[in-house]
Design a protein around this nucleic acid. Structure first.
Lengths: 212, 212
DNA sequence: TTGGTTTCGGAACACCATGTCCGTTACCGA
DNA sequence: TCGGTAACGGACATGGTGTTCCGAAACCAA
């Protein structure tokens, strides 16, 4: 079920299946999609399909895995710095994602897996960043994993809403909204002396509540 | 498929099916559960099942609907006051929920529907409270629906984590955590003069960031 | 208790989607 | 050009679904 250096025909088939699946998932709920639907839409034979995928779920997973890899790489790259979460990059990634696949997928119910996987990946990265770069500043009875969970969830909620609403605002504005809504609570957990540093230059402005 | 004043036998059947389903959903992913599994577990006949439910999904929906009604009533009741969200009551509701059904359901993957429905209900309530009681204080470029979405999402993220982790803290502590993490960003959107009023007495304390 | 009504249960059934196997055809890479 | 590999269509076994029929059992009201 893997492709090392694939025959053109194999690539073609996989491409057709992915495209067909993306279309279908945008039209109807995942669990209503039949293998036959994929076959018809992709214009391939039954045998061919099963030569490439175990089953319907395998198609979903392969697409998600592929997309998730890009995102995870982006997240981990940011985790090496002091930033807790590469929010702007993620908003922009979704925004500029040429292939409709990502949007269609995110909007459909099939993406529950994707969102959950993203939540986990984000959470890990945030926790790591928090314990690596902010340990000495962090003094709060709230456990770090809870903070991470909250931040990841708050971000993904906004991202999800934004994508579902067909991205009515530019990524930069979403980034600002996220900073204003979700981060003050986290900053408050870090000792005062360091609040001006790192993460974002908007911090002081936000906490003074004057520019709204 | 409804029961007005049901025969004892009908009640028994529905009860058995609900219980069996709750058990199964705690043991395996929803889409792996067969009707036959429910039949075996509940100890009823195939014919009987289809006399009460359209299909497997109908069982899930009926349980969710039932639970959702309780929660929605609680949410709407709080929405009449100035509070944005009855967080403490919801944490406590989950905590004291005697029947394992709620916990098992929330922890399983089948509950995606429930979470989504909760998100919508919460969002509506928050938006309503915000436009009703806070209009004159609210002056921000961030649209009210976005704020509502964020608050509902942030709360549900914490609730979800808490339930999944088998509720390691008392509801009161979760309430405090939620207030500290998620609300500062929202309060900052309301004009300064009113920040001491309503919602929660902890507000000033939080914003001064001294008690952490 | 009785008698009419409703539900239950079991077996058999048609239906449909799944996943596999075959021989043949078309395409690819070298 | 030629050997290998993938696509194809059709047929097939499998397994879960939802329905039907009918006798037995449980219910409820009188």
């Amino acid at each position: 079920m893997k492709q090392e250096k694939a025959d053109r025909r194999s690539q073609r088939t996989r491409r057709l299946v992915s495209a067909a699946f993306a279309e279908l998932v945008a039209e109807m709920p995942y669990d209503k999609i039949l293998v036959q639907d994929i076959l018809d839409r992709a214009g391939i034979g039954r045998t061919t399909f099963y030569a490439h995928y175990f089953d319907k779920e395998d198609v979903l997973n392969s697409i998600i895995e592929q997309e998730l890899e890009l995102l995870t790489r982006q997240i981990d790259r940011a985790a090496t710095g002091q930033r807790l979460i590469p929010s702007l990059e993620l908003f922009e990634h979704a925004y500029h994602s040429q292939n409709q696949q990502l949007r269609a997928l995110m909007q459909s119910r099939a993406s529950d897996f994707l969102w959950e996987a993203l939540q986990v990946a984000l959470c890990r990265a945030i926790e790591s960043a928090l314990t690596t770069h902010w340990t000495e500043k962090y003094s709060s009875p709230i456990p770090v994993p809870v903070v991470s969970e909250y931040l990841a969830g708050a971000f993904l909620t906004l991202l999800k809403w934004w994508v579902t609403a067909d991205m009515p605002y530019p990524p930069e504005q979403m980034e600002r909204i996220f900073q204003q809504l979700a981060l003050p609570g986290v900053w408050a957990l870090l000792t005062e002396s360091e609040q001006k540093a790192g993460i974002d230059a908007d911090v002081p402005t936000l906490l003074s509540r004057t520019h709204l």
